[in-house]
Design a protein around this nucleic acid. Structure first.
Lengths: 205, 205, 205, 205
DNA sequence: TATGAATGAGGTTTCATTCAT
DNA sequence: CATGAATGAAACCTCATTCAT
């Protein structure tokens, strides 16, 4: 995982325990209500603090969003790059990308939910440039994996790569619903089922 | 003093042309910004009207959302039921459901986008009970199609039906991105590609 | 979107000094303009605060009304009950009820004015149930005092008790006009004159 | 009754039947909700017309109020003056004033209710100068009747004339509650009971 | 005369943010 | 670090009034 030792602008003591607690509360609230509908009062209430006091730890609501998502996305990009570097068979790559993405989702289901639901807003929000950048990086990893598979004749060429890519992305981002705390299945099992579905399809051959 | 949420009597001309225009404007704005972030001023601006004047036509922002989504969802449920009634082979049913859903998405891509992005908020919004009900109806159609296919041995039984159902739903709801005005592909082609992907999988056999 | 009427958690410091100041300002404004015509901006202006900031202390305009009136009415009911418990002669009871009511009016003339002028609206306003309940309690105290006097043959039986009760209520509630800050007479003198008028009538015998 | 053949400013056809109907609807609505809380939409709804169409008949909401109240008040002043002119005994005068006032209340209970509840607003509303003037005239009639009775030694002198006057005014204005449509007693009976109460008091001598 | 659409001002309320203590 | 008070902008919505048809 990337280490967020420095925060944008002149924000205070970097990362205390309190800061982490607040961020966890914010993560939950953002996941449940969405970043637009979530208010700083909601976050304060969940963290056991008054909303005004949040500003001792974070410069803005946006900064919280960034601080929640950037590490998650960065770590995903790193994981993806490692997989691409050490794997050669396209279906193996895709299978492992799915596994890594689902594992991330398992590690931080709230973050996954935020990404799935609020990506649309990140462009207009200030200070989320890095989030947007990392999201693009993730997408590009999926895209090259798919294109490579098609180029090597292992993936079907009669489906538009962009459709494949985005559909896989959607399916994987929705995996949080099948695992704790929302679902009941262990992450690796979810990953396996999604991989089967994506690679082999629903129909029995 | 307290805001009366009840529909004012005397207003509400059922559906005039102006009403339709405003609804179209609202549909666009909701799709682009999300129902929470979209303001009545945004809608008014797009419709060429002052925000207060919207209330000559609609009782609330919520009512607009309902009026946009209910017909779309109802028509989808009807289409789904017709397909289920006249088709017997599970893979045929699923293929046709996908086709119908994508066709809907093509007919009203903005509505699809709203559903995809804002479903989470509908439960807490007042006056959207019918929307929620129809959404449940849609989901139940997908679910029974999938379960039937599994029961008849045509769909794989090693993937949780709920995972299958939700994943298909996600993929189909995202189809608006590949068609006009956002994408460039004709609807029936998108439907065909998604059906292939879902039923046969990405891998070349 | 829909306005949540529930009291926000986290706010509401029970009663600070500021809260009292605002409540006093609100009391004046409500008394002068009436609860419907009084705007939160009026109240804010009188309290030296922006109208939005009022909501740091109160959940709604209605809550202010309730918080102004409930204690006044409750205290009146208590006073009435004490009188009824320790007094036996009907004319003595009535005289003392009038005295207590006028004393209340003297203690909080603005509240009396609000009650006199805006009772009609309380039923339709949200959160004023307790106000309505206490008002009924006050009325019932007047009614039983009058009926008791008639039953014991001390009050005339040729006038409908409901007319008597309501008329006395009206006269007493209007007492604020004769005392400071609107009038000039001391409260006990007003009470004495009203009691004479009510019990003995205007005519010289 | 004074004939309102001319309306203030350049308002249309003077008085058609429709105008009367609307005015009746407005009277009811004003009485029930109060002139501030009553909206032109309420009035239109009760009159079976759209609110905008009201302005073909009246220049403003205020004009309606004026047109409702001025004739009532003028007629009361005339009646009072006639009584004062043809009666000499103070208690007879007062008794007949009460009778006349209650009769007015019976004839137009809604108007009485409006006067009782909304007098406070008339000063700030535009175009109600004549209403205010006539209300002053009414008050002055009550005042002189009372003062005359005191001067002639027929009314008690140990109660402030202003208190007497205002209290009588309150009681009489509240009479609408005891007669149809709100109460059940015939007007002359209400008048008789109020006169007894005011002149002779509640206590049995 | 009436309708239906619109205006524009203003109402209550929300909310991110600031700051003295 | 946290509180509690406040700000100021902006949100949703209401309402008297106007006007073309």
């Amino acid at each position: 995982m990337a280490k967020p030792t420095t925060t944008r602008a002149g924000t205070r003591p970097a990362d205390s325990a309190r800061r982490r607690e607040i961020l966890d509360a914010a993560t939950e609230v953002f996941a449940e209500k969405g970043v637009v509908a979530a208010t700083v009062r909601d976050i304060g209430a969940r963290a056991g603090i008054l909303s005004g006091s949040l500003y001792h730890h974070f410069a803005s609501k946006e900064e919280m969003v960034a601080e929640i998502l950037v590490p998650v996305l960065r770590s995903q990009v790193e994981a993806f790059d490692a997989i691409a570097a050490e794997t050669s068979a396209p279906e193996q790559i895709l299978r492992r990308l799915i596994g890594a993405a689902v594992a991330q989702t398992a590690a931080d289901p709230h973050a996954a939910r935020i990404i799935r639901n609020d990506t649309r807003h990140f462009g207009e929000m200030q200070g989320l440039d890095e989030v947007v950048r990392q999201q693009r990086a993730v997408t590009s990893r999926w895209t090259s994996a798919v294109k490579q598979g098609i180029a090597r004749g292992r993936f079907r060429s009669d489906v538009d790569p962009s459709i494949v890519t985005k559909s896989i992305g959607d399916v994987v981002l929705g995996a949080y619903r099948f695992m704790r705390p929302m679902g009941r299945m262990p992450a690796n099992q979810v990953a396996e089922q999604l991989a089967r579905l994506i690679l082999d399809g629903l129909e029995v051959r």
